[in-house]
């Protein structure tokens, strides 16, 4: 499997875990607005990588269709 793709997914998982831990910690400390802000920020950061992955996928599908 393409190593760049796999490392991208592992990065996304890492950021996701970090955001989840921060969310739990902040909710425990009674700062749930910060928790929501951290979740949204993490989602935006991860969206960039996701868009790149999905563009790769749809490009591959389009070259297959053009046959």
């Amino acid at each position: 499997m393409d190593p760049t793709l796999v490392s991208l997914v592992i990065q996304i998982a890492g950021i996701g875990l970090l955001v989840a831990v921060l969310q739990t910690v902040l909710e425990q400390a009674d700062k749930s607005e910060w928790a929501m802000a951290v979740t949204v920020a993490g989602l935006i950061v991860v969206m960039y990588s996701i868009v790149e992955l999905i563009t790769d996928l749809f490009d591959a599908v389009r070259t297959m269709v053009q046959f």
């Binding site: 793709l5 996701g16 875990l17 739990t24 992955l53």
Partner: peptide, 29 residues
């Protein structure tokens, strides 16, 4: 990783699911 993420944050779990599925499909295509 998804089972871990789904306990704390459903949104990040969806993002990881999309990413993993997209990668596997890309490799196949």
């Amino acid at each position: 990783l998804l089972t871990l993420l789904r306990q704390s944050s459903d949104a990040m779990a969806l993002v990881l699911a999309v990413a993993a599925s997209a990668v596997i499909l890309t490799v196949i295509v």
